[in-house]
Design a protein around this nucleic acid. Structure first.
Lengths: 139, 139
DNA sequence: AAACAAGTTTACGTTAACGTAAAGATGTCT
DNA sequence: AGACATCTTTACGTTAACGTAAACTTGTTT
């Protein structure tokens, strides 16, 4: 008996609504078991949800994420053609990730220099203020 | 006279539609000059467009991008409060970028191991095939 | 002048990813 | 039993980011 989860447990853990989780199932990203009509999520399902959210944070659409899941599943009993297709998709994803890494690096540099500029501007403001105070004290 | 660009030049260079560029202007991400009713883009505008697209690739909404632009503009004649606000926003963005870096690293690792599994599966397929051929040759 | 290219405004249409509300089933506590 | 809490399905509403089409202006080529 490995651990299972209710929909609201997962919703709380990953900070998403139950509506979203059901929607992901509707989009065939999840396939939880049922006890009666109630959904029961295995730790496998939990992993899939985690991967889904991670993919979303990287800007993937639900359709793209689903495609990756499907390809991955097909890999096990995969024909040669499907394996090559999978490798192709993997290559595309890795290229996109590298572009994203570059983007992030650029933006990080920009934010860093922006922060420096801000701090300098603050220093100048403080300097002006102390100048004024000194002028008043010695006036 | 520094260089200027037409809308379709920029559209071609960055591979977006003119519709999108006009939409970004509508959302106040761009403020091109006009000659008559025709838009004329400066190299400043070009930079803004580039930053906009980069932000989009990182999953920012147009509203978020606009907010960053506005804060950045306000930094020049910024009051102390606005400077602190800017620093706060910069901090948020940098934190988000770090999370994204982690996500990317995780996914890269997963893709890498997926690729390895694919290649191994292919090797096994090839191995089986050469086995069969040898069996036929020696049968 | 006529036609063509490139630009414009206006406005309705579309898709993804949920939000929100209604109405009912199921199990649990008092 | 009754009143909760949690779950369910169904279905219409919403927002962002454009697509697409129509009708018009402006400059350029034939």
């Amino acid at each position: 008996m490995s651990k299972t989860y209710s929909i609201s447990e997962l919703a709380a853990e990953f900070d998403v609504t139950t509506r979203s989780i059901r929607f992901y199932e509707d989009q065939e990203l999840l396939r939880p078991a049922r006890r009666g009509q109630t959904r029961i999520y295995s730790s496998q399902d939990r992993v899939r949800l985690k991967l889904t959210l991670r993919g979303k944070r990287l800007g993937l659409s639900l359709a793209e994420i689903r495609e990756l899941f499907e390809l991955w599943d097909e890999t096990r009993r995969g024909s040669e053609k499907q394996l090559h297709l999978m490798l192709e998709k993997i290559g595309e994803r890795r290229a996109a990730l590298e572009q994203q890494m570059k983007d992030i690096t650029m933006v990080q540099l920009e934010l860093e220099s922006a922060e420096i500029r801000c701090r300098q501007a603050l220093e100048e403001l403080n300097q002006k203020q102390t100048d004024e105070e000194r002028a008043r004290a010695s006036g």
